[in-house]
Design a protein around this nucleic acid. Structure first.
Lengths: 190, 190, 190, 190
DNA sequence: CATGAATGAGTGTTCATTCAT
DNA sequence: TATGAATGAACACTCATTCAT
């Protein structure tokens, strides 16, 4: 196992254990053991348990951002573009349930410094931010205060992924898929 | 200090410390000390730290439910009733910022058994549930799957309170107040 | 329940719990609760947990001594008298299994001050001591050092009660009953 | 200090403290401190205080068994062999007073699971068991029930070691040494 | 870099004992 | 006397972190 492999194994194991048991209930020893390395090795790659958590948080955020970016191509009308983004984002969540659950659990938790959380949130919301701006200019979207709109969008996204994560087969049901987007879109519509 | 006072002092102190430092970073000793009682006293009232957490969670949930119930009088048209409920709920959150923050932090956290969380969530959502049903019957609200609608409502409520908690003076601004309700209402509107 | 009743209830309960769970694993609160009195009441009757233990130890010792004394009537020859004493003592142990087990467990334990234990042991052995003296004078018993003989007697008595306590029905079997006494007697015989 | 040294130091210290203060009155912290290691180290070698106790019990039992086995050579007549065994066993007890006292104190105590105690007792008694069988075949020993005889042997052994431990110089006195064996042998003799 | 035994401060929890009622 | 809530010192045990190998 190469160096990078070991670091990645530690991140993967930490993700699984943090989600299933929580940050504080997961000992560094158990992470190392399940990752197949010695206890001390964890501290060669991460200066502390907190840093492991932060790197994990940021790496997942990055992965999400990369996944979304790679699939976006804004060319149709605003609503179609938004719907595409919505589906791509929820697809990612359903394809990466552990990582999505990690976000749900730790986005509000004091286990992660608020600056790091803020940074991650902004990154997620930046996609929406641009669309909202575009929609306001064309008059398709309502002229609500932007920061409030962003928070609302984020809330809807979290709610939808929570729902479809708990009921994965419902995402195949066009009724549910459409409904979730309709609520999201209508909330912002002019 | 009477018996009830001590128990209540422990709950109050636990609320403050859990919110500001997190559940795991708060020692039972520090709760007791700050509440002005001996360490053992905490365990006289709560069999464990976990049980303290659960009782705290349930007591806050109950307080919220009572506050809402006492101010509800459904008599006008659906939209007016809904707006009233929306404002009452957000008012409560802003009047009880610690308790609201507690919900934000722990509604998804493994520090609280999921059954307890579920129970609390249902209680909160039951108010909305009735209004949604009413709206569907009259045709004022869209016919989306009820469970999905509830999750979406909850998400919007959390997002709005998060926003106004971070920017308390904005709730006095009618523009923001209106906008937050409009997004909530339009999402569900037929 | 009268005062004496409560004190006796505490002693009875303590006996049962000390035997089944051990001295340290039994909390004063559990003794009080199971005896049907308040925690504080225990400390009205016994100044400390240790004193409760000592009073219990001495009261059982006394009960044993009284039971033996009341049934002894030395009139026949030495062997017959000894056999009678042997049977009376073992009968008592089998009729009071909890108390006998208590002795087995605590005769050697540091939970009881050694002076108290010594005092109790002497009381038990005094019966034997007289018989041994008598036997030596008549030449029926061997002329071993008295203190060593006493210790040996005591060891045999503990072994026999241990055995018959674990196999109560064997005491009805004359073969076993006889064998146990034969070993005891032959060990001392001239 | 090597790894094995630390574990052994902990066992040695635990033995000394358990004997002098009792199991419950001895804190794990005090064992570690007196053994010259950190508190955590104790739990690195033993998963709990109870396990330390069990390992201690079994290691002493093993040491006793090894000591006896190494010195046994059955070649003479039964009585001579038995006397040799008796002396070897008591010699061991007197050479290892702490370990013998440990047995006296904990053989009956609930601090040690009864299965472990049983296992240890059987190991000790197995030596005797064989001799008893041999004696019954040759008719030199009485035909008492074997289990009762074993218990009686054990009781005598405990009594004798107790006596000579309390009065060590008496073991040098041939009168006492002979008397102790005579009582043991005559009890079983046909 | 990797290891894992060692560390020791810190944790949740217990429980004999006290004392105001 | 009797009560039982309150006390706080003491405990077994955990775990992030270090460091000699």
């Amino acid at each position: 196992m190469s160096r990078t492999d070991k670091k990645q194994a530690l991140l993967d194991t930490a993700l699984a254990l943090f989600v299933s048991q929580g940050f504080y209930a997961t000992s560094t020893a158990s992470i190392a053991k399940q990752a197949g390395v010695a206890t001390g090795t964890l501290f060669h790659h991460f200066s502390s348990k907190d840093e492991l958590m932060q790197q994990l948080f940021l790496s997942i955020k990055q992965e999400f951002a990369d996944a979304i970016t790679s699939q976006i191509n804004q060319q149709s009308d605003l609503k179609a573009d938004t719907q595409h983004l919505w589906q791509v984002a929820i697809n990612w969540a359903l394809s990466n349930p552990l990582k999505q659950e990690f976000f749900q659990q730790y986005s509000m938790s004091p286990s992660i410094p608020s600056e790091i959380r803020q940074q991650a949130m902004n990154s997620i919301l930046s996609f929406m931010g641009e669309l909202i701006l575009r929609g306001k200019k064309t008059g398709e979207l309502a002229d609500y205060p932007p920061s409030l709109m962003q928070e609302s969008c984020h809330g809807q996204y979290l709610a939808a992924t929570r729902y479809f994560l708990d009921n994965p087969n419902k995402w195949q049901d066009e009724i549910y898929k459409q409904a979730s987007f309709s609520m999201f879109w209508n909330a912002m519509k002019a």
